[in-house]
Design a protein around this nucleic acid. Structure first.
Lengths: 251, 251
DNA sequence: GTACTAAATTGAGCCGGCTCATTTTAGTGC
DNA sequence: GCACTAAAATGAGCCGGCTCAATTTAGTAC
């Protein structure tokens, strides 16, 4: 990968027009884990309950502490969930790709949003309110069971993260996150996997519970070892296997 | 609190007979959060799906890694969930009181148990298998929604714990756990709140992600400041308000 | 009361990673 | 290509808490 003039390898997302066309909406709704198994007709009806919004990069979808009144689905782009701590630090809870949902509703046990949701890149999100969602629930009972499953999976992930924070050194944590990001947002190229979403050192630090200086140092090491390439706000994994072998398998 | 001869202040639980009498079972089942709102008749029917087991102190209910086939409810005693890490450390995920459930089922998204469940004291637990539970689900649709709510609440707790591990010093973490234990298992006495469940330094350390030596040192400090009293496997909080004010509010 | 022992305590060296400060540079606009 | 600047990198001092080792003692059995 050679840059004659330095430009980010990330795809530009300032595509003209609205990204929330019906086709794309329906496609992404069908990918929402708790709507799986539903027929096209059912999805069409559900789609009617959702409203679309176009969010500029860096803009919030909702703020931490606000009353939880809506569920959201990423249709295009990426959304980052940040918990702002009382100590003035940020914890990056998750970075969501199209088809993933976020937000909260009273019926699901949420009172206030525990985090602020930001568009990591220009994004299109769909939202549904409490009354509409309960209608969807009643009309499609399988949705409730699927929701339990997904919430349980998220709970397991959160618990695994507790494990990581308790016992894993920072290198290992960073490796784990890079590999996860490669799987979730990675674009295969002949020279590796480009994580096709803006992802800065601060994001990495906030997601692994370390400082951005430490994240930077470790990324420097990985780069010097030929395991990754990176620049301002982007990362490409040159050798995922070796990265995993060297920093995860060692224990 | 004066001990003429050193004996633990904890109640002895080697009560003769079986603790899983129908009255107690029904009472604790009605306290399970996802069975709330059900009528006595419904609870009677649900009770028929559960089997009882008597577990000796220190014995496991199930092992980490086993196939998840049952949900359990604590009727009497206390159950501790320990995740054994590959690094040889233990993470105390939760300490459950009567009325709380644990375990897992495929329908809820579980494949294997992520932790080993141990009886922290002689306990009586009820269990239900996959087929029975799905029947309960179908007969009582509100159970599914309640389950989402509870799982969501557990997810929030887990995420709060990530926040704590990321930014809180150990004193603050230990304080938080002591206060939580006081609320959950505390017995009010004129000289404070006795945590009426065995709770060692190792338990405290495993629950706060620190070493037992560090837990011991901090408890020594709290003791010297008159905030707690403790002995082998027991803790009493002498001044919860001051403990909170001094180690949590300071930020 | 004595004997016992595992839980709790204590001492001390070590280090991973933090904070603070400064410098370098990737990537954009023109 | 030049100018700019915020993201990334680098240096260095500091310390919270870990690990290892040894000692003390809470609570039980008899």
């Amino acid at each position: 990968m050679k840059y004659s003039r330095r430009t980010t390898p990330l795809k530009q997302t300032e595509i003209q027009g609205h990204h929330c066309s019906v086709d794309v909406r329906l496609e992404k709704l069908s990918k929402v884990a708790f709507f799986r198994e539903l027929q096209q007709e059912q999805l069409d009806k559900i789609n009617e309950h959702f409203r679309a919004a176009h969010i500029q990069k860096g803009e919030p979808v909702y703020h931490q502490g606000e009353e939880a009144k809506q569920l959201f689905v990423v249709v295009h782009g990426a959304v980052k969930l940040i918990h702002h701590t009382t100590e003035g630090k940020d914890i990056l809870m998750d970075l969501l790709k199209p088809g993933e949902y976020f937000g909260g509703l009273p019926v699901l046990g949420d009172e206030n949003y525990a985090e602020t949701a930001y568009a990591q890149m220009t994004s299109c999100v769909l939202s549904i309110g409490a009354v509409d969602f309960e209608q969807v629930l009643h009309a499609n009972p399988s949705v409730a069971v699927n929701l339990i499953e997904i919430t349980t999976r998220r709970l397991k992930q959160a618990r695994h993260r507790i494990h990581q924070f308790t016992t894993w050194p920072v290198e290992k944590r960073i490796t784990s996150v890079l590999l996860m990001m490669g799987e979730k947002f990675g674009e295969d190229r002949k020279d590796g996997i480009l994580i096709q979403v803006p992802f800065s050192r601060k994001d990495l630090a906030d997601m692994t519970g370390t400082s951005s200086e430490t994240a930077s140092r470790i990324m420097r090491t990985f780069q010097d070892e030929g395991l990754i390439r990176s620049g301002r706000g982007w990362v490409a994994i040159s050798d995922a296997e070796k990265l995993k072998q060297r920093y995860i398998s060692d224990g």
